[in-house]
Each structure stands twice: as C-alpha cells, then as structure tokens.
C-alpha cells in the first residue's frame, strides 16, 4: 500500500486551471486556422478585387474577362471608387446546342472604400487581357515624406 504523504500534494490546486488550459489551446487553434484558411473575405460581389499598396500609390486590380472598355464605367466620389459595367454576349447562337454554360454574362457594380485619401485628378485605369488595373496616387498629405537629418 502506497502512502501519500500530505506534503507531496500541491499546496493549492485550482480546479479551473485545466479548463483555462483547454480554452487557451482552442484559442490558439482557431487563430492559426483563420490565418491559414484563406477566407474570401467580404467578396461574393463581382468583381473580386485585389488591392496593392505602394508607398505613393494604390493599385486595384480585377479580373474582367470579356468586358470591353466601352462597357466599363469607373467613378470616384470622395473615397469611394465605383466600378460598373457589363459583359455582353452569351445569347444563344441560332442552331447551336450548349454543352456547358459556366460563363456569366450581365451587369455588375461594385463600390469600394479606399483606405487612404487619393488624388482624384491623377487616376489612371487600363484594361489589358481582361484585367483591370486602376492606379490611384495617394494624396500628397498622406504620402510619406523624407525628412532630412542635418548635423550641426
């Protein structure tokens, strides 16, 4: 028979400590899951956008295959950029039988709030191979400015 001496026991044992440990473990697990799993974010609106930030400008890209420049309408109001347009076509050709119809046709509209103030006068947009790239120069007030250090 084993004797357990009273002094071998921990002086104070928190019964909730184990729960706390499990909770922390779960927190860590969910954190890594969120970081790893690429969530589509607030997308689900066509077109999906990628925004790149450079020190002096913002680049917004979108995949718009089959959209003509004449069917695309961009506008900026304050800090909201609106992309509107339509993809025409898709009408069934006479005498053709369709095997697959995966491509969507129709109109789209998306507004995006810009994270920084931009110079609305110098916005450039181009459409190459079905990819729209909008270049927005940051307003001079938010462009990082080099500060020269002088020795005295």
């Amino acid at each position: 028979m084993a004797f357990i001496r009273f002094s071998d026991r921990p002086t104070f044992r928190n019964p909730w400590a184990e729960f706390e440990r499990i909770r922390q473990g779960l927190d860590e697990l969910s954190k890594t899951y969120v970081e790893k799993g690429k969530t589509p974010g607030p997308a689900n609106v066509f077109p999906a956008l990628n925004i790149y930030e450079e020190p002096d400008r913002l680049l917004i890209t979108a995949e718009l295959p089959g959209v003509k420049t004449t069917d695309l309408d961009l506008s900026i109001e304050g800090e909201t950029l609106t992309i509107q347009g339509q993809r025409s076509g898709g009408d069934s050709e006479t005498g053709a039988s369709y095997h697959r119809r995966e491509i969507q046709y129709g109109s789209f509209s998306r507004a995006v709030t810009l994270p920084v103030k931009v110079d609305t006068e110098t916005i450039a947009a181009k459409l190459t191979n079905g990819i729209l790239t909008v270049t927005l120069l940051k307003a001079s007030a938010v462009t990082p400015r080099q500060i020269k250090v002088t020795a005295e």
Partner: peptide
C-alpha cells in the same frame, strides 16, 4: 477556366475565360 461549349452542325466552339493571359 470557366467555359461555354456549344455545338452547331459544322463546328464545336469552346469559349474560355483566361484573364491575364496574353
């Protein structure tokens, strides 16, 4: 890529969306 495939008496046409490809 998303595709549309349709067929007429003379030919089969495949339309595919490949944005960004030159």
């Amino acid at each position: 890529p998303h595709v549309d495939i349709f067929e007429t008496e003379q030919e089969v046409t495949v339309v595919a969306d490949i944005p960004g490809v030159g």
